[in-house]
C-alpha cells in the first residue's frame, strides 16, 4: 500500500551531507530542515524571499502566530538555532534565480527543492545538472505528494516532465493538508541521506494521501533530454510563473509519461 523511501535497514548506506541548502522554508522546507538538523547535517542554508502569512501557519511548523510578517528564513532560523545550537546556519532572504542558482549548488553538497513554483523547480533541476550536485525534488498538490532525487548522471526533472506544464494551479488556490506537506518534506530529507546506487536511474516517489496508497516509479535518463541528455547544454533562464500570487503554493508539475 504505502511505499515511500526510507533508509530503514540499509543503515550503512545512509550518508549525511555536511552542507545542505534548503530552497523554500514553507510547507516542505520546515519539516525537511527539521529532519536534516536531527540527522546531524552540519550546515543548513535557508533561502526564501517571503514573509510569514497567517495562511502558512497550518502547515509550516517553524512559523507561529507571533511570526506573521517576519521573514520566513528568520523565523525558521530562530527555532532551528534554539533547538540545534551546534548547527551552522546561513539565512538568505531572497529569490533563487538564474544569476545565483549555480553558486548555491557549488557552495553545498546537496540542495532541497522545497519551492512552490513550477518554473523555479525546472531552474533548480537544470542547475543541478550543470553543477553536478544532487537535488531533492518535492511537490505537493492537493492529496498527491511527489519526491525524487536528481543525481549527477541520473535522470533530471526534464526527463520526467519534458516541459513545464502551463495549466496547473501555481498559486495559493491549491489546497494542502498540513500532514501531507510534512510527510513529503520529511521524505525529501530521508532521500537526501540516501544516494541512488545505480547510475542513470532514479525513483520517483508518489504518495496518495487520500487512499494512503503510494508507489515508486523507476525513472530513466532520457538520451534526448534537453537538460541532461547526450550533448545537451542547458541554459539557465528565469521564466515567469504562470499565475503569480501574493502567497504562492507548493505545486508539482503534471506528469507526462516518463
Amino acid at each position: 500500500m504505502l511505499a515511500i523511501v526510507a533508509p530503514g535497514e540499509h543503515e550503512g548506506w545512509v550518508h549525511v551531507p555536511a552542507r545542505v541548502c534548503v530552497v523554500g522554508v514553507g510547507g516542505l522546507g520546515c519539516p525537511a530542515s527539521l529532519a536534516l538538523a536531527r540527522a546531524g547535517v552540519g550546515h543548513l542554508t535557508l533561502v526564501d524571499p517571503d514573509r510569514v502569512d497567517v495562511s502558512n501557519l497550518h502547515r509550516q511548523l517553524w512559523h507561529h502566530p507571533q511570526d506573521v510578517g517576519r521573514l520566513k528564513v528568520e523565523s525558521a532560523g530562530q527555532k532551528l538555532r534554539a533547538q540545534f545550537p551546534s548547527l551552522g546556519l546561513a539565512l538568505r532572504p531572497g529569490r533563487v534565480d538564474a544569476s545565483n542558482v549555480l553558486a548555491l549548488f557549488e557552495d553545498h553538497d546537496l540542495v532541497i527543492d522545497a519551492t512552490d513554483g513550477v518554473q523555479v523547480k525546472f531552474l533548480l533541476s537544470d542547475a543541478a545538472v550543470l553543477a553536478r550536485r544532487p537535488l531533492i525534488y518535492g511537490g505537493v498538490l492537493r492529496f498527491e505528494g511527489l519526491a525524487m532525487r536528481v543525481q549527477p548522471d541520473g535522470p533530471c526533472l526534464r526527463c520526467l516532465f519534458e516541459t513545464p506544464p502551463v495549466d496547473v494551479p501555481t498559486c495559493a488556490q491549491a489546497g494542502v493538508l498540513g500532514s501531507m506537506a510534512a510527510l513529503v518534506g520529511a521524505l525529501q530529507a530521508t532521500l537526501a541521506l540516501r544516494p541512488e546506487q545505480e547510475k542513470g536511474l532514479a525513483w520517483l516517489h508518489v504518495l496518495d494521501g487520500w487512499t494512503l496508497a503510494a508507489r515508486t516509479v523507476r525513472v530513466r535518463r532520457r538520451k534526448d533530454c534537453a537538460a541532461c541528455g547526450e550533448g545537451a547544454n542547458p541554459v539557465l533562464r528565469d521564466e515567469a510563473e504562470a499565475a503569480a500570487c501574493p502567497t504562492p503554493t507548493s505545486t508539482s508539475p503534471v506528469r507526462s509519461a516518463p
Binding site: S55, C171, A172, Q173, C245, P246, T247, T249
Partner: peptide
C-alpha cells in the same frame, strides 16, 4: 480579497 482567500 487576495489569493488564496478569494476562493475560500
Amino acid at each position: 480579497e487576495i489569493c488564496p482567500m478569494t476562493y475560500v
